[in-house]
Design a protein around this nucleic acid. Structure first.
Length: 817
RNA sequence: GCGAGCGUGGCGAAAUUGGCAGACGCGCAGGACUUAGGAUCCUGUCCCGCAAGGGGUGCGGGUUCGACUCCCGCCGUUCGCACCA
């Protein structure tokens, strides 16, 4: 090994600053969006620009996505890798309130800090196309999208329940309610019903579900598609009408086969028929129950309590199958926002109904029986199975297998017009109203004569005004509603006095279309340029956290479908490939401020350099699983880079000529190219890095300095350590940028050794190894084994029962006792 | 409760998908060079054993010539969803 000269050593601070400046000067990371040869849109989930700056989780996510983008670039694609800021939302607003500042002042500072950090990371970002959702030039088009949905009848207004904190005087998201209390002040949260805007995502449920299985449109992480499937929550069942004095009560059930066992009904307390059904004698109790239910927050309503409580309305309805009059109850375990808000209770075969019936001594009838039971066996607890059960006590349907009975009863219901088979989804329409300040105003004007009117396109954007009293108040309406000068406007249609919608839209609307905007940030007159969209979309690779597996990714898909149906986009699935990265923990525990184990990336970059930091993040565990961040771990990747640096120095020395290469080095070289390439493609970054380390170790062990190998190593390292590799490339005499180099190719024939070592097992235990030429026949290997004393020791005098030979792999001699 | 994943040395992890368990890295131990070493370079490092050998991938069974890998049953753990009719 050559002597180590500290002055020649690798200095990340100098190298990184140098190349970041060069990339900017030379527009290295700016593909021609209008004339792309082989376009590759490499997207990563944009961050919310918090005051704390990017945390190590962001660095991990972005580095992994950037590695992939740089790899694709080296494979000859033109890679568009944009970055932006998801800067609207309740986070910024709450933080501003907390520190007594204004989000409009905070956000630009935070963004500046994020930009600084992102540049230090050395991402291949195209900064010409940066965007922030808070920029009027952006949210103009967020509002435009709202209007496209509104004009297409895909946006509508209805009353819906929200969580309300009476102390903070604000609406809370479900995630902000912890055990029924406000996460910030601990006050019991209650429900309020407000008029809100919704998008009809449920109309798309079937397509959103179907495309998940369409490999030509979507190549996504399985965990993500499963989460989406569960969230959409399709269930097959039937709607059945039970006649009552107040008219038909419609229920939804997935088990119409148990209709004969419905001995009472339960309605959600908010159900519209409750008033009409309530008998005068029960009025007091019913009203008290309904009031108590509405005082509970939405989260508490949804947390299943073992004990089911409710009250009888005194009203009755007719079971269409038995003709019996059954009592109608109300209980908060029935939710107004699922199904029809009313159920037929089958206490014999549903756990909750059983608990309810037991408590209130309502009749329990068996209508399903297993092979061991008959219709007279008393029920001790509810059954839930279908398969293996047959119907009993079910009139002419008795005796049928439950699955056949289900079909037959649905047919009968349809014939008698008592109901029909339907599909129900767990998915709700998307509520986009927020009674807050820090978001894009919903572009609607209310006029007494014309009703709600969409703001005309030429009047967009509806600018979010700067107001100082943006804290939400007791009125339950948005802070903007306190600003008459803002919301009072003439009706765009009839010019009479009218007023603006004062709610703002959900941040998820901002982020549902940002990938479209990146391509076209320079155009003020259109949300996205159709030709560019055609070139570049759908997104070739999208990498992000699985915390957005459901909402963000589902909303983006939905919007793309709507825009596709309107002829504005040529695709309906926006993200061809999606991969969820893992999460980083510190010393085995989730990072949190209270635990004091938050990793601040800047200090690590100061100490080790961005390239070492990137390499360590990619090396510490499988990218899709994440891993444990340990300070000591950075030393390994840094030592690796130092050694490569020295090797490059040796190659650059003019006296060196190519030397005879060992066969084993050639094999290792080709193996490495193969392993790295295949590893990168499947995001197996940790093993790709390990492969390069192995090659380096092999080179050092044999004192081999080969220019061609070192060059390949530098190229393969470039996705992980871009600045470092650029510098090495330059030292090796490479032109302009290593990212214009050609990705190393390998020869499959050279990835295997010509002489292989074969383990010899006796009864499955390895007893020896023999060296044979590659592809040696069983005969040859067995002969070699037969002469090996450490094998014969175990086989002599024993009957050979079987010989298992796997070519180039192993030989197993199975002998008798 | 339902769904998905995970469980391998002191630690982070590999394992060509049923074929040499522990690659690669951290840490640790010993040595070299050094005024020095928290730099660098060698050597060693799953466990028991001086060795021969034996044991070993959360636990218990099974399939197989052969199981970290497949099957059945547990235990632990992480993450979603959750009174969804």
């Amino acid at each position: 090994m050559t002597e180590h000269h500290p002055e020649d050593g690798y200095r990340p601070d100098l190298v990184e600053a140098k190349w970041q400046a060069r990339w900017a000067e030379r527009h290295t990371n700016e593909p021609d969006l209008d004339r792309p040869g082989r376009p590759f849109y490499n997207l990563m989930m944009f961050p919310y620009p918090s005051a704390e700056g990017l945390h190590v989780g962001n660095f991990f996510a972005f580095t992994g996505a950037d590695v992939y983008g740089r790899f694709k670039r080296l494979q000859g694609f033109q890679v568009f890798e944009p970055m932006g800021y998801d800067a609207f939302g309740i986070h910024s607003e709450n933080f501003a309130i907390k520190i007594g500042s204004h989000p409009a002042d905070l956000i630009p500072r935070n963004i500046a800090n994020f930009r600084r950090q992102l540049e230090r990371l050395g991402g291949m970002f195209d900064w010409r196309h940066v965007l922030s959702t808070t920029d009027p030039a952006y949210y103009k088009w967020t509002q435009w999208i709202f209007l496209q949905l509104y004009h297409a009848g895909k946006a509508y207004k209805k009353k819906a329940a929200v969580n309300w904190c009476p102390n903070c005087k604000t609406v809370l998201a479900n995630e902000q309610v912890i055990n029924g209390a406000c996460e910030r002040c601990g006050t019991q949260v209650e429900q309020r019903r407000l008029e809100q805007w919704f998008f009809r995502i449920t109309e798309y449920a079937e397509r959103l579900l179907a495309n998940l299985d369409d490999a030509s449109k979507m190549d996504w992480s399985a965990s993500t598609t499963i989460a989406q499937r569960n969230w959409i929550g399709r269930s097959n069942g039937a709607e059945i009408d039970f006649q009552s004095a107040a008219g038909p009560i419609r229920v939804f059930t997935t088990r119409p086969d148990t209709l004969f066992g419905a001995t009472f009904m339960v309605l959600a307390p908010e159900h519209p028929l409750v008033d009409a059904l309530t008998a005068p004698t029960e009025r007091g109790k019913v009203d008290a129950y309904r009031k108590a239910a509405s005082a509970k927050d939405l989260v508490a309503r949804k947390v299943g309590e073992k004990e089911k409580h409710g009250v009888a309305t005194g009203g009755v309805a007719t079971n269409p199958a038995t003709g019996l009059q059954i009592p109608v109850w109300i209980a908060d375990y029935v939710l107004m926002d699922y199904g029809t808000g009313a159920i037929m209770a089958v206490p014999g075969h549903d756990e909750r109904d059983f608990s309810f019936a037991t408590r209130y001594q309502l009749p329990i009838v068996r209508v399903l029986a297993g092979p061991e039971q008959d219709e007279y066996t008393p029920l001790a607890e509810a059954a839930t199975e279908t398969s293996g059960f047959r119907l009993v006590n079910s009139g002419s349907f008795s005796g049928k297998a439950a699955t056949d009975g289900l079909t037959a009863i649905v047919a009968w219901l349809e014939q008698e017009k008592h109901g029909k088979g339907v599909v129900q989804y767990r998915l709700h329409d998307w509520c986009i109203s927020r009674q807050r300040y820090w978001g894009p105003p919903i572009p609607i004007i209310y006029c007494d004569s014309c009703g709600p009117v969409g703001v005309p396109e030429q009047d967009l954007p509806v600018i979010l005004p700067r107001i100082e009293d943006f804290r939400p108040d007791d009125s339950g309406i948005s802070p903007l509603a306190r600003h008459r000068e803002w919301y009072q406007v003439p009706c765009p249609t009839c010019a009479k006095p009218a007023h603006r919608e004062t709610d703002v839209s959900d941040t998820f609307l901002d982020s549902a279309w940002y990938y479209l905007r990146y391509l076209s940030t320079e155009f003020a007159d259109r949300p996205f340029d159709a030709i560019r969209a055609k070139h570049w979309l759908p997104v070739a690779s999208y990498i992000g956290g699985n915390e957005h597996a459901v909402l963000h990714l589902l909303y983006s898909r939905f919007l793309a479908m709507v825009l596709h149906d309107q002829g504005r986009l040529h695709f309906e699935e926006p993200f061809r490939k999606f991969r969820a990265h893992g999460t980083i923990v510190k010393d085995g525990a989730k990072m949190s401020k209270s635990r004091g184990n938050v990793v601040i990336p800047d200090q690590y970059i100061n100490k080790w350099g961005a390239d070492t930091f990137r390499m360590y993040l990619m090396f510490l565990g499988p990218y899709e699983e994440g891993g444990d961040f340990r300070d000591e771990g950075l030393a390994g990747p840094r030592r690796f880079l130092d050694k490569i640096w020295d090797l490059v120095g040796q190659c650059a020395a003019p006296t060196l000529t190519g030397n005879e290469l060992h066969q084993s080095i050639v094999v290792k070289w080709h193996q490495t190219k193969k392993r790295v390439t295949e590893g990168l493609e499947i995001l197996s970054y940790n093993t790709a890095i390990a492969a390069m380390m192995e090659l380096l170790n092999a080179l050092r062990a044999s004192n081999c300095v080969d220019r061609a190998i070192v060059k390949d190593l530098v190229i393969m390292l470039a996705p992980f350590a871009p600045h470092f590799s650029e510098e090495c490339w330059e030292r090796l005499g490479g032109a302009s940028t290593v990212f214009d180099a050609t990705w190393p190719d390998w020869d499959d024939g050279l990835t295997v050794e010509q002489v292989v070592e074969i383990p010899i097992q006796v009864n499955g235990k390895t007893r020896s190894r023999v060296q044979v030429p590659r592809g040696a026949s069983e005969k040859v290997v067995v002969a070699a084994a037969r002469q090996d004393p450490s094998v014969t020791k175990y086989t002599d005098g024993k009957a050979l029962i079987k010989v298992v030979y796997v070519k180039d792999r192993l030989l197993n001699l199975v002998v008798g006792p």
